[in-house]
Computed example of a mutant assay.
Amino acid sequence: MILSRRWSAFLLVAGAWNWLIWPRFAKAIWDDPRAWHNGTPTSFLTVHAVLIVTALIIGTVIAYVGYKGLRSAAKRPLS
């Protein structure tokens, strides 16, 4: 599959957006009183941690595909 420069840039920005948004959400969850019960993590924290880690992994893969697409597009002549 060959990605256009526009789609590659979009994927790169979408991956970066994940890395911008999800860590802030993680901090909000960490500070939420529902995340802890007597100093131990609750299922609320666990479920959100899994969600956040999954989103960051997907964001990383999306950004990587966008980066590779842009690198590949730079080697192709403009059409």
Rank of each mutant, 00 (worst) to 15 (best):
M1I: 02
I2P: 03
L3A: 09
S4Q: 06
S4K: 14
R5L: 09
R6F: 15
R6T: 15
R6E: 15
R6L: 10
R6A: 14
W7A: 14
W7C: 13
W7I: 15
S8C: 08
S8K: 12
A9V: 11
L11R: 04
L11D: 05
L12N: 09
L12F: 15
V13L: 10
V13S: 09
A14V: 12
A14H: 03
A14K: 11
A14D: 07
G15T: 03
G15L: 01
A16I: 13
W17Y: 02
W17A: 11
W17D: 05
L20S: 03
L20F: 11
P23S: 03
P23H: 06
P23N: 09
R24K: 02
R24G: 11
F25M: 06
F25T: 05
A26M: 11
A26C: 02
A26D: 03
A26R: 15
A28H: 08
A28N: 15
I29V: 13
W30V: 06
W30F: 15
D31L: 14
D31K: 08
P33F: 10
P33G: 04
P33T: 03
P33K: 06
R34G: 01
R34C: 05
A35Q: 00
W36Y: 12
W36E: 07
H37G: 01
H37I: 06
H37Q: 10
N38F: 12
N38H: 14
N38S: 15
N38V: 12
G39L: 07
T40I: 00
P41F: 04
T42S: 00
T42A: 01
T42N: 00
T42C: 05
T42M: 00
S43K: 06
S43C: 07
F44N: 02
F44K: 01
L45P: 02
L45K: 05
L45F: 15
L45D: 05
T46Y: 08
T46R: 07
H48C: 00
H48I: 00
A49L: 05
A49K: 09
A49I: 00
L51A: 09
L51S: 02
L51G: 07
I52C: 01
V53G: 00
V53Y: 13
V53D: 02
T54F: 07
T54H: 08
T54W: 10
T54E: 08
T54R: 01
A55K: 02
L56R: 00
I57M: 03
I58D: 04
G59E: 04
G59N: 06
T60A: 10
V61P: 07
V61T: 04
V61W: 12
I62Q: 10
I62R: 01
I62S: 02
I62C: 00
I62E: 06
A63F: 13
A63K: 11
A63M: 13
Y64F: 10
Y64A: 09
G66K: 04
Y67E: 09
Y67T: 06
Y67R: 02
Y67M: 08
G69Q: 03
G69V: 07
G69D: 05
L70S: 08
S72E: 15
A73F: 10
A74Q: 13
A74L: 13
A74W: 13
A74K: 14
R76W: 06
P77L: 13
P77D: 14
L78P: 09
L78S: 10
L78H: 14
S79Q: 12
